[in-house]
Structure formats: structure tokens, C-alpha cells
Amino acid sequence: MTKLSVNINKVATIRNARGGNVPNVKQVALDLERFGSDGITVHPRPDERHIRYRDVYELSEVLTTEFNIEGNPIESFMRLIQDVRPAQATLVPDAPDALTSNAGWQVEQNFDFLKGIIDDLHRWQVRASIFVGTDLDNIRWAARTGADRVELYTEPYAALYPQDPQRAVTEYIEAAQLAKQLGLGVNAGHDLSLDNLGFFHQAIPELDEVSIGHALISEALYLGLEKTVARYQRALGK
């Protein structure tokens, strides 16, 4: 069964635009759990332009589903992970000023660094996931780091899907199959939506988890959070 983890960064973006605590990020996360989300994802960045480090600590005290913290494993991020001990840390190679994550790791070139980070995560009993593309050699290198999972970067799939769904998903099928053969779990995220998630899920039975934020929060402006989460879960066969 594929789990749905909802990324709540966009909720924090709206809050930060006006200051104060509206919308209440912690309450939205609790409501998402109540509405059927299998987990909550956050991606704190050093400038705290959306999720703040304080949010992460506060969420860790109240969440009952899986907590996934994404980010570039710089010193402040790793200190946060050590303190919070989430279910999963997803390692993403984005620059501090990146608008959004737009590429996966080149694992071979960063092998020693990533292996050391993953050793730390395992010492803290945190599941380690590496954000990658569909290059098969890169996934083989990811397995050698000792990572538990890879998260497949799905923006290329989402971009091609309207023109040619089958061609869009082909490389992801191959990547997921190889990851499973190597003992890796398979997550996916970036630009997945109600339009394209069902096809992606049907094509990739190896999928353990999807992390979805921007599209889900945007669709909830029309449908409401509860109905939107229900539709995503139906797209995942639940």
C-alpha cells in the first residue's frame, strides 16, 4: 500500500505572508492526519521562508503519523534531525536560495558525504531516503550508501504526462524495479497531482510513499482539505 505524506510548506508560506499564526500550521497538520493523510512532510530551509525550525519542533510533539523532514543535510538540518528523530529524513541537494527542489543527487560524486550522513541517521534510528532522478547507475550508487529508500524526482514525469503518459512513466518503472531489486524502498515526489498520480501509481506497484504539497494544497482551495485528501487516497487505490 502506497502511503500519502502531505507536504505543508505552502500552508506556512501563506501564514508567513501576513505574520501571526493564520493559518495555524500545527492545526492543519493535525487536521490532515484526521482526514486520512498517512504522514506529514516538511522541508525547512535556512531562510525559513515557509516552514520554520520552530514549526518542526512543535509538530514533532503532536504528530501521530509518520513525520518526514526533507532538506539539504547541512549542519543546522542535521542538528534538527538529531533533536527531533523523525520517521524519515529525505536528503535533497538544493541550494539555500532554491525556489524549489529541481534535481536529485549525483550520488557517486557525493558518495562519501552521503554515506557519512546516512550513518548518522541510522545511529539516530531515522530512515534515510535520497532524492534522485531515474538514472540507473545513480540508483545503484544510492544503494551502496546504505540508504533505506530513494525518492524519485517526478517533475519530468509530470511535464510529459499530458502529451504521452506511457513514455512519461517508462523510466520511472525501470528505476523503481531496480531500486526494489537492490533492497531500496521507493518514494516519489514533485509535481504529482490529482491529474497524474493515479496513472503513476498503477504503473509502479513498488511505490512505498508519495510526498505531495503544492498541488494538494492548491486543489484544496477549491475542494477543501478533507475532500482533497480523500481523492488522493482514492488515486492510490484506497
Rank of each mutant, 00 (worst) to 15 (best):
R79S: 15
T145A: 04
P86D: 06
D94C: 06
R140Y: 03
D148A: 10
V56Y: 10
F77I: 13
P162F: 06
Q163E: 14
L136H: 07
Q106I: 10
L160F: 10
Q106C: 01
T154M: 01
R45V: 00
G71V: 02
L114F: 03
P156D: 12
Y161V: 02
N68L: 02
D97F: 05
R79D: 14
R140L: 02
I139E: 06
R144Q: 15
R149M: 08
I117E: 09
E70D: 14
R144H: 11
S129G: 03
T64E: 15
F67T: 04
A159V: 15
Y172D: 09
T145M: 01
L160N: 08
T65L: 08
Y153A: 05
W141Q: 14
L136K: 11
I81D: 05
T145L: 00
D55G: 04
R85Y: 05
V132N: 11
W124C: 07
L91N: 02
R54M: 00
V132D: 04
E58H: 06
N110W: 02
T65F: 06
T145Q: 03
V56A: 08
S60D: 09
I118V: 13
V92Q: 09
P46N: 07
V92C: 03
I51Y: 03
T154A: 07
R123W: 03
V132G: 10
D94Q: 05
L152G: 13
R144M: 07
P73H: 10
Q125S: 04
D135E: 14
Q109I: 01
R123Q: 15
V42I: 10
E70F: 08
E75G: 10
N72V: 03
A168D: 12
L114R: 08
P86I: 00
D47N: 09
I74P: 09
I51A: 08
V107M: 01
P165T: 12
L136G: 12
E48A: 08
D112K: 13
I117L: 08
T134K: 06
T170N: 11
D97L: 07
N72F: 12
D47L: 00
V62M: 06
D97Q: 15
S76H: 14
V42S: 09
E70R: 09
Q106N: 15
F67D: 03
L136T: 02
A103N: 08
T154W: 08
I139P: 08
H50R: 06
P93L: 02
R52Q: 15
E155P: 13
W124P: 10
R79G: 13
R144S: 13
F67Q: 09
M78R: 13
E70V: 03
N72K: 14
V107G: 07
G104W: 01
I51K: 04
N68V: 13
S101I: 00
L114T: 02
L80E: 09
N110I: 01
T154D: 01
L160K: 14
H122N: 13
H43T: 06
G146R: 04
R85I: 04
Y153M: 12
E61D: 10
I139R: 12
P165N: 12
S60H: 14
T145P: 11
F113E: 01
N138W: 07
E70Y: 11
R140V: 01
R52P: 04
H50S: 06
Q106S: 14
R149Q: 10
R167M: 09
Y161W: 13
I81P: 11
E48L: 05
A128K: 08
R144K: 15
G71A: 10
L121S: 12
